[in-house]
Design a protein around this nucleic acid. Sequence first.
DNA 1: CCGGCGTCTTTTATCGTTATTAGACATTCG
DNA 2: CGAATGTCTAATAACGATAAAAGACGCCGG
Lengths: 310, 310
Amino acid sequence: MTKPNTLFKEAYNSCLGMLSMDASLPSETELSARLKVSRTTVRSVLTAMVDAGLLHWEKTSKQVIRLPVAADYFPDSETDSISSVIERAFMARILSGRMTMGDRISEADLARDIGVSTSAVREFLIRFSRFGIIEKQRNRHWVLKGFTEEFALELFEVREMFEIRSTHAFIRLPAQHPAWTALERIEAEHRALLEAIDTRYRDFSELDERFHRLIHNASQNRFILEFYEIISMIFHYHYQWNKAGEKERNRVAIEEHLRYVEGLRSRSLIDAEYLCRKHLISARQTLLTSLEQPTPSSEVRKRLRPALIA
Amino acid sequence: MTKPNTLFKEAYNSCLGMLSMDASLPSETELSARLKVSRTTVRSVLTAMVDAGLLHWEKTSKQVIRLPVAADYFPDSETDSISSVIERAFMARILSGRMTMGDRISEADLARDIGVSTSAVREFLIRFSRFGIIEKQRNRHWVLKGFTEEFALELFEVREMFEIRSTHAFIRLPAQHPAWTALERIEAEHRALLEAIDTRYRDFSELDERFHRLIHNASQNRFILEFYEIISMIFHYHYQWNKAGEKERNRVAIEEHLRYVEGLRSRSLIDAEYLCRKHLISARQTLLTSLEQPTPSSEVRKRLRPALIA
DNA sequence: CCGGCGTCTTTTATCGTTATTAGACATTCG
DNA sequence: CGAATGTCTAATAACGATAAAAGACGCCGG
């Protein structure tokens, strides 16, 4: 196999959602912009839709013949790029506790297990190495430094420095800056989520990410933003693997966020900084607590990555 | 071609330096440790030395037959790993001013120019991307964000945060910690260099790096240390490309370092922080000034990378 | 038995190749 | 004549293959 057409499949699925009997599809250029792929790919999608009997397409005219059914969609598993498949498989390995600090990581081994080429794994590891969890020396194997307490502490040390810096930058933003209205919207979302916390507590992680990202954006510093990518990745997987006390944990975090927002709006440096610190300390505590019990329930494990359990 | 034997050549050259008529070579294991390569490579080196008529080798006995001459060494150009070749070529491109912000970077193009495979370039770019100078989106080309004033300011913003944090950590080190004696040694080196500044000013960049690295080590934080790699890389190339006013610039920096060291030794947080800040501000100024005149003299350009000038 | 060596297996660093995708230019249509 | 389409070229994202290098295992001599 060579370059897989996951992008095509993803665009195809996404385009199926745009079909309706009453409106015809927009121009190729427009579609290209909306689907965020090149026109070449758009044309492949359109051709495939014609072949599937969904569309009559000639020049500018794009008449929908029938609406898509479930069977018209490509399965999710085929729309993931190889790199994201590797990422998930790799994180599953680390977080499942099957690997411990100091373990060797073999490119060849990983590639075999996941079923991809060594080059793909290699590129992934290089990209992943910036997260500070793995390391390698020239001509030698990778070593797992581990997702340990130490790691979490170092991570939060930097996170605190950066987030406080961003907080200051945020407060200095002029009153008419769009970030302030964005903050209001996010605050409203927090309140709405808090109302329905019993049923919707799972939505928090996504909101959490958007909230902190908004704040970090004020820093206008590529290194700070890049560092938030690490945080974000860690929490993304951490949330998936550790569900213990999730509802309560999220409720507390939402309340902290709300106070933090108030601090920002008050434009008081010391209040904002204080409330930011408070929140980060409890976030750190959450992460540390969950590291003490590294093996997640088999139920969670199964949901995340069936292939590796057998 | 496949995996090149640059490592072998490097080890061979390095091993040639260990030959002497009166002593025989140590055990394979010992050699392996000293040359920092595997025993397999050591054995290749020994075999090659026998073939070159330098050595009589049977089991534990390794008798030197003749001393190596210049012709026995592999040329430097053959001992560089592909990745470092790419790095140099790429940095030369960026710093020469031939590329400007927003330019597309083509993997294929670079590979052709440098004369290596696309995969090698690709891996390099991935590794290099953590420096924040280039960027790419999925399925699209790389873009040069540029080695600009903005970049330098963002870099120094983070550098200052980190270095001050490290300074604090350094001061808190117990008096018997080896870092204090290391600091004393480095201080002495600074004084020696200052004495002979007229002739030895070129030695400063290496000393500078060791000095700051020593301080950052106190932070015990992988993200801070990793960030210093970026600084270090930037300065490494920057020093090579911008020689204007180098002697005076280095003299000033040495004096700042000396005051900075005094601040550390006084264990006074505010003094150390103040002197650290002072030094970083002037370091930033140096970098900014040199960014204003991006094209280096042709003399320098020639020395750094002859191949690209023609 | 323990450091050192001989031999063998596994893994990495590089390459070249190919389908997919992006992007550029020419052409057509309203 | 500008936006949309048709066509073509070039670049990227994968793959597998191969020589170099690492690492493992067993043997041997003191």
